[in-house]
Simulated scan of single mutants.
Amino acid sequence: MSSVCDEAEQVIKLPNSYFDRGYRKGKEEGREELLQTIPTAIKMLQEGMDLQFIVEKIKQQLEHS
Rank of each mutant, 00 (worst) to 15 (best):
M44I: 09
D20W: 06
E7Y: 09
E28L: 08
E32N: 05
A8R: 11
G48H: 02
M1V: 10
A8K: 05
S17G: 00
E29M: 08
Y18L: 09
Q36L: 12
A8P: 01
T37R: 13
K57M: 14
S17T: 14
I12N: 08
S17Y: 09
D50R: 08
K25Q: 05
A8S: 09
Q61K: 07
S2K: 08
A41L: 10
Y23M: 06
S3C: 04
Q36F: 04
N16P: 00
K25L: 02
E32F: 03
G22N: 02
A8V: 10
S65I: 01
I12K: 06
E9N: 07
Q46H: 14
P39W: 10
E56L: 14
E63V: 01
F19M: 02
L62D: 01
V55E: 10
F53Q: 15
Q60M: 07
I38C: 06
Q46S: 06
G30V: 00
S3Y: 10
K25T: 01
Q10I: 02
Q61T: 12
E7F: 13
D6I: 09
K25W: 02
E63K: 03
Q61S: 11
E47L: 13
D6R: 12
Q46F: 09
M44W: 15
G22T: 04
D6K: 12
E63H: 00
K57W: 09
D20K: 08
G26A: 10
E29N: 05
K59M: 03
Q46I: 13
K59I: 10
V11S: 04
R24E: 12
E63Y: 00
F19A: 01
G48E: 10
D50L: 10
I54Y: 00
M49Q: 15
D20I: 08
P15R: 05
G30D: 02
S65V: 03
E32K: 13
V4E: 14
Y18N: 00
Q36Y: 04
Q36V: 08
E63N: 01
K57L: 14
M49E: 14
R31Y: 11
I58E: 06
E47Y: 04
K57D: 15
T40H: 10
S65Y: 00
I42H: 12
I38R: 04
V55F: 07
R24F: 11
Q61M: 05
E28N: 05
K59Q: 06
K59D: 08
R21T: 08
A41S: 02
I58D: 02
Q52D: 14
E29I: 06
P15W: 06
L45F: 12
Q36E: 14
Q10D: 11
G26S: 03
T37I: 04
S2I: 11
G26W: 04
L35V: 06
E33W: 03
L51I: 15
C5S: 11
A41Y: 02
I42V: 15
G22L: 03
M1E: 07
G30I: 02
M1T: 13
E33N: 04
Q36N: 12
Y23K: 09
Y23A: 00
K27Q: 08
I38G: 05
L62G: 02
F19T: 01
N16E: 13
L34D: 00
L35C: 04
G26I: 03
T37Q: 15
K27E: 08
E47Q: 15
D20R: 02
E28D: 10
G48D: 08
E33T: 01
